[in-house]
Structures are given as C-alpha cells and as structure tokens.
Design a protein around this nucleic acid. Structure first.
Lengths: 347, 347
DNA sequence: GGACGTGGGAGACAGATGAGCAACAAGAAC
DNA sequence: GTTCTTGTTGCTCATCTGTCTCCCACGTCC
C-alpha cells in the first residue's frame, strides 16, 4: 500500500542517507558505488514507507514522461476502437508506458484536431498514436510531427508518416478463395459505394482471384450499395434476381452480409446450402450471432494498435528511425474466420 | 503553431520582464499589479513565440495535474465502453481535464487491479473513474480511496464510494409498458441466468408492471437462458410453445431478442404482427439492424460517463463532498428507443 | 520625512536526476 | 614516518519548468 505523501526526501531521512543515494539505489544507477548494506537499508525503508517516485517530477527532470497520446477518431461509434485501444494499452504497459486518450471526430476541422494534438504536446507525451476508425486517406495536423507518431488504419495524404493498415487485398483474396475452394463457380460481390481504398482494393482482389482461378473475373456480378444492412439487402435482391444468380456471395462487410441473409431468407434460399456467404470485418456482434454463423475476414485492429505502439516506443527510445518506415505503410494481414456460412454449391 | 522548446524564461527575456511577471500575466493572478502595457507586451510575445506552459512543471508546483484516471474493465469486449469513454472525455475536456486510460479485466485479481490504480496514483491523477462494463457488485482496490473516485455502472461491495448506475427498474417498466400500451395482455419475459442486479430488478419490474395494469404478473410466462443469441432462441422456442403463448415479449437484452426473432421466423410468426418484441441495451449494431428494427431500452452509458466525470471534478475542486453522495448510488434513467417491433396484437 | 501606492523582481519551492567532488582509509613510495 | 596515490562511498549542487510569497525601488501626499 503506497502513501503518496511520502517523497524521496522522507526515505532519505529515514534511511540516514542523502536523496541522491536513494535515487541511485532505487534506479540501480550503474556508476553509483554504494555498499550493499546501504543499498539494503534504502530498499527496506523505501518499501516500508511505501515510497513510489513522483512520475511528474521524474518526467520533468528526465524529459521523458512515459506517456503516449492516443487520439482516436469516433471512439464510440465503431466497435473497432476498443480493439485498437486494447492492443495499444497492452503493448504500452508491457514496456512501462501509459496512454492518454483524446477522442476526436473524423469530421472535425483540422484546427480542432490540431488543438487536440496540442493538448497532448503540452503534457509532453513521448509519442502519439493517431487512430482512425476505417482505412482511408486522412489529412493530419501538422504539429503531429513534433514527436514520434504512428498512424493506425489510414495513410496520410502527405504520406510522410509511419502508418499501419490492414491487408485489404489479402483479406479479400482469402474470402473469395474460401468460396472457390468450396467449389463455387458463380461468385458475386456486393461492394460499398464509399470512395475509400478498401472499396477499390476488395473489388480488384475479387476479380483477380476469380481470373486466376480460371473464371471470368471481369464478368462476375457486382452490385454496389451503401454499406449498411439495408443496402446489403437491396443489393442482394438485385444480384440474386439476375439470371444464373451466384451461389457464392462475397460481401463488402458484415452488415451487408446481414442484409444478404435477409434477402436470401425472403427468397426461400437457405444459407449455406443454396447460397454461401462471406463477409468482412468480423464484427462479432453480427458475425457470430447470425444464423448460421458468418464466415468473414477479421480486421487486425488489436494487432495494428500493438504494432503501432511497439514501433512508437522504439522510436521514442531511439531504437528505430520512423522516417525510414514512413516510406511505405506497413500492412498487417486479415485472417479468415471460418464459421458456417460456406459450403459446396448444390448439385 | 506552438514550439515546445519555448519556456517561460524565453518569453520573459523576449519581453524584457521577469518570469514572475510572465506567469502573473498569463495566469491573470488577481493580486498582481502590472501595467496594461506590460500585460499586452507579455501576451503578444508569448503568442508570437507560441508559448504554452509545461503542464508537468505546472502540475508539480501546484499539485494539480488536471488528469483523471479512467480504469475500464474489458474495453474491447463490449461496445458500451466506447460510450462511457466518450461521455467521460467530453465532460472532462469541457472543464480542462484529460483522461489517462488503463484497461483491466473484470476477472483480474484484486492485486492486479490495485496495481493499475497504483500506476494512476504514481502519475498523480486528480481523481479516478472506475468503469465496469455491466451493472454488478464489484470489489474495489483499496487504494482507490487515496483520491476522489467515482464508480460507473456498478456498486461497490463495501458500498462507500459514489456510484452511478442505470435505472434498471424504470427501463424495464418502460419496456413492458410499451407492450401494454399497444394492447397486449399476454406478455412474456425472457430473462438472463446470471446473478446480477439487472436480472432480479428487470424481472421484478416486469411482474409489478403487469400487476399494476390489472394482469396477473406472478403468472406471466418467464423463461431464463444465457443472455446470448442462442439462449434467446431456445428460450423463445419454449415460451412460444406454451399454450396460449404470449403476443408480447420482453427480452432481457438485444441479443436475446435477436434469438427470439429467429425463433419467431421459424415458427412462421411475423414481427410485430404476430409477436411484438422489446429488448434492452440498445446495441445499435443489433437493434437498428434487425428487421424490423428492434424497440429497446437504451442504457445511459454516455450519460453515466459524463455524470461521473462532472462530479469527480467537482470533488477534485472542492465543490462537492463525494462521501455524502456515496450513501446511495445515483440512478440514471434508461429511455425507451422506439423502432418497429411493437404493434397491437392481432384481432 | 514617514506612510502609502504602484510596478515588478528575487528566491524558495515542487520532487526528482546526474555530474562532479569531498572525505576517508589503505597501501605505495621515499 | 610522512606524503602521495588510489579506491570506496556518498554528498553537494545545479537542473528541469513553472508558481507563489515576500520584498524592493521609486514616487507622491500630507
């Protein structure tokens, strides 16, 4: 049990030594020559008194706070934020750092986001993690450059900051591959309508994977809608109304897949027997709870948070040069999560 | 644009005054007598240089960090955490405070959770918000008492800490009331099996509301299952298989309601025409995306986070005595969110 | 010419770290 | 035996960046 009224001075007095000696002993300063007896005494007394150094004073003196700033866009509106924060927090505490969090809005002005970073800077964080909630191009506040920073789930428009993003293409290939592997030859894709990298990359990977498997990727049925349940429903109705409808459906995300489930049910199609479906995102609340469970692709949010913190700390401690890594974003893989929504096509 | 190499000393030199004067001007110290000209000059220079005080040094001297600790249980596993954090962050920044976050596990040992609090204490946070992810009785680390603290979404086993919790009973009454109001007389409840306050309170409110409406609350059909989709499905099958099955169904949470939707679909029952359903939690991903949209009761996570921070800061600033508030937990209401899953019973 | 008002500065302080120095004992050199 | 060297042990003092409590200088008023 520690008592925060105890300072190093109190320990020093109680142990009958100077504060310097206490500091040297407790920090195990290599060049300090202090007898084992004194060391023991200092440690014992310090323990008894429940002494813990005042991190503020320590930080002031050493110019290191051991705090990292985490600015998170739209923390409450997506369940992904939690995983990024968890990954970041666990990686940080494993190396003795803590997180200061600031929430911001993706639609906030650049000035307001700059002020957020400023707040962090005034508190002398050692580095900053800037997390967006979906993969896109983002304009970053200029003052981010004042300390080591890493961008999570986006790339900067300027492009000169280290970033970590999900492997959209690999994920999409895995999803389509799962359908192909099950024997489907008529495979469709319900895409998103937003102009984000994922939209283009997943589509391209979809076509490429089919083509490489000897199918006609360019002719494969594709519908686009807003990436919500309703959009998924509508697009699925359209795609399933085509002649020779697909027996395998790759959906841009799990919400679209949820809409497709409803469309299938209305058409009397059983999943997966009549229609195999694969999603993207692995939003557990949806994917695991649909019936049958939705096979989908997981976004590595936890991993991205941890990766970012790991490299941020390396940079803070001078073990890495982030500017070198800034040349290309780091890509983390998106594993396929197999549940029960894919099987071989009928007949 | 601020430059963090600039200290108060630089401002003082540039303005040709002492650091004392700069400090007095910028902090608008009431008893300081400084001419308007000097004040202007100091402010102008300070602005030009982009000076901002070093919050560490400031905190060290004033014994106030302006930082609040937020220990959050299981941040990643529930979407509720995000809303608590958002409410807390917005309330905090509105009053010039920032949040330091630490994630912990609800199943972590008391020692480990105590160490988490210790970390916060070593950094001299002015107060601590301890947030659990669902309403229950929790054993708190003893060192929480060292600074003002507020508990969110739980009450402490000891009971001597200010807490804010959702109005389970009011929420349940609103849910059942909505069914009654629509004209249902055969109303059932699918309860949770966990031994948490919500289980008891929602059940009790369910029966009481029926009884007060002139129905036989004690005889109303109730089934209990684990509060997941599968449990909801099974319980719904059972409750709907009874003779004279209910036409209105109150579900312990939205996941159970999702299971009930599936059960209804399998039995050929249309929602809401054949079966009206009301949930609890307002997990948007589920409630808004089911078809038809699920009418449910929202938990005031944002509000609890904001309320807690507000009162925490009041306590830190000496405007409130938390020990007085600790006598009884504060209860925040759970509003009904109307969507499309309730209508009048057939015939 | 002492009291008082005005404008602003000096220095202690918050709680640590770190470079360099002092005190002392033991052994070496003469 | 005295002085010098060297190693051991731990302390002094400056530093980090602000805040805050006196205190001082100077002019004026009665």
């Amino acid at each position: 049990m520690s008592n925060k009224n105890i300072g190093i001075k109190d320990v020093a007095i109680a142990a009958g030594v100077s504060v310097t000696t206490v500091s040297h002993v407790l920090n195990e300063v290599s060049y300090a020559r202090i007898s084992p007896e004194t060391r023991d005494k200092v440690r014992t007394i310090s323990e008894q008194l429940g002494y813990g150094p005042n991190r503020l004073a320590q930080a002031l003196r050493t110019q290191r706070t051991g705090m990292l700033g985490l600015v998170s866009e739209d923390i409450a509106t997506t369940p992904h934020a939690g995983r990024i924060i968890l990954g970041a927090d666990e990686a940080a505490r494993a190396r003795g750092y803590n997180l200061m969090i600031i929430n911001t809005s993706g639609s906030a002005s650049i000035e307001s986001r700059q002020a957020d970073v400023e707040t962090l800077l005034d508190r002398r964080v050692d580095g900053i993690l800037y997390a967006t909630m979906y993969h896109r191009n983002v304009e970053l506040p200029a003052n981010l450059g004042s300390v080591p920073s890493v961008l999570v789930d986006s790339v900067a428009t300027g492009g000169n900051i280290t970033a970590v993003i999900p492997d959209e293409e690999g994920g999409a290939r895995a999803a389509v591959g799962a359908l192909l592997e099950a024997g489907h030859t008529r495979v469709g894709f319900i895409n998103n309508t937003d102009d984000v990298p994922a939209t283009r990359q997943r589509l391209q990977a979809f076509r490429a994977t089919l083509t490489e498997a000897g199918l006609d990727g360019d002719a494969a049925p594709v519908e686009s809608e807003v990436s919500e349940v309703q959009g998924g429903y509508e697009a699925a109705r359209r795609i399933l109304a085509r002649e020779n409808p697909p027996t395998g459906l790759f959906c841009y995300n799990d919400r679209i897949a949820m809409g497709a489930y409803r469309a299938a049910a209305e058409l009397g199609l059983t999943i997966p027997a009549d229609l195999s479906v694969v999603g993207f995102d692995d939003q557990e609340l949806i994917a695991a709870n649909l019936h049958p469970g939705l096979t989908t692709v997981a976004l590595p949010h936890y991993e991205m948070g941890a990766w970012a913190i790991e490299h941020l700390i390396d940079a803070v401690e001078g073990k890495t040069d982030l500017t070198l890594m800034a040349l290309h974003p780091t890509i983390l893989s998106c594993p396929l999560v197999r549940r029960d929504s894919i099987t071989a096509p009928r007949q």
